[in-house]
Nucleic acid binder design. Structure first.
Lengths: 154, 154
DNA sequence: CATTCCTCCGAATCTTTTTCGTGGAATGAT
DNA sequence: ATCATTCCACGAAAAAGATTCGGAGGAATG
């Protein structure tokens, strides 16, 4: 799909604030609301704009600790990879799963109550899995997300 | 801040779809729109609900490759950590930065055009930095985010 | 030039958001 | 037990916003 300057502006603004009203968005990109809406609808139906997700305060949810767990599997068969993938995504503590190439096979971002909870999670949900050979846990001191996906087209 | 069952429902629904209209949200949680709005405003002003971010298709932005770059610093002084942190967050390719405890000091999630771009990024923006001792790059085959932050309060 | 194709705009309509006053249930003191 | 007090939730009304639609302007094409 073809994206012009205004489409990119729209995408950037909505990445920063997904709840911008169409009217605000329109005036920010210099279009009439009706024209802006047409573009947003086009971006949505074209699969470029995929939806929005609210961000909540982890502390308010009782999350006191986050970690990255690097996981090595015993074998790299498709079945094992898929099994672990599904398992990890099913855990409530898991925020994100990365299947990677390198010394480890997965990096799993988890959010837990405290150190005790993390230990239990590591042992019960990772170490004991048959397809898991080895894990290495790194506590997260601080983390930040960039609001914007880079755009290499324009 | 005190969160009851309905607040949690609201937070979960907005995490899954941050653009739910207040009316839809209200009917989903079994409240009148006016009551639902009051709760959402309370969650917002209380800092529990922090905003929403649209999700865009990386491929549509010309992102063909993502990677996790594990970074080790030479020293662990506060100044070096802060300097690297700021630097990394300023790069357009960087989607997220994790300051971690463990064998590495940072994990940086980057989105690039292709392998060539990744090599340039690694060399120009990481390896050549004076505070960086060593990096290790892992290509991301696939990744997934869970929509929900776990809630350990309710 | 005439035609076609795009994209935008503004007005009208329809929906949603937001405000505000009322009433019921729970809490606590007398 | 009774009376305040507080906390929510509700519904109606007013305000704001979303969406539709017909048509104008402008660039490319033949």
């Amino acid at each position: 799909m073809e994206l012009d300057r205004i489409d990119c502006d729209i995408l950037n603004l909505l990445q920063k604030d997904g709840r911008l009203s169409n009217k605000e968005l329109a005036s920010a990109v210099g279009l009439a609301p009706s024209s802006c809406l047409a573009r947003v609808q086009r971006l949505r139906s074209g699969g470029v704009l995929r939806g929005a997700h609210a961000e909540v305060d982890p502390a308010a949810m009782g999350v006191g600790l986050q970690a990255l767990i690097a996981v090595q599997l015993r074998q790299h068969s498709r079945a094992q990879v898929k099994a672990f993938w599904k398992h990890a995504l099913g855990l409530p503590e898991v925020l994100a799963v990365f299947h990677v190439a390198g010394t480890h096979d997965f990096q799993v971002h988890v959010a837990v109550r405290d150190a005790h909870h993390l230990r239990d999670l590591a042992m019960d949900a990772f170490t004991t899995r048959s397809e898991v050979a080895h894990i290495q846990t790194s506590l997260i001191f601080e983390w930040a997300k960039s609001a914007l996906m880079p755009n290499y087209r324009a």
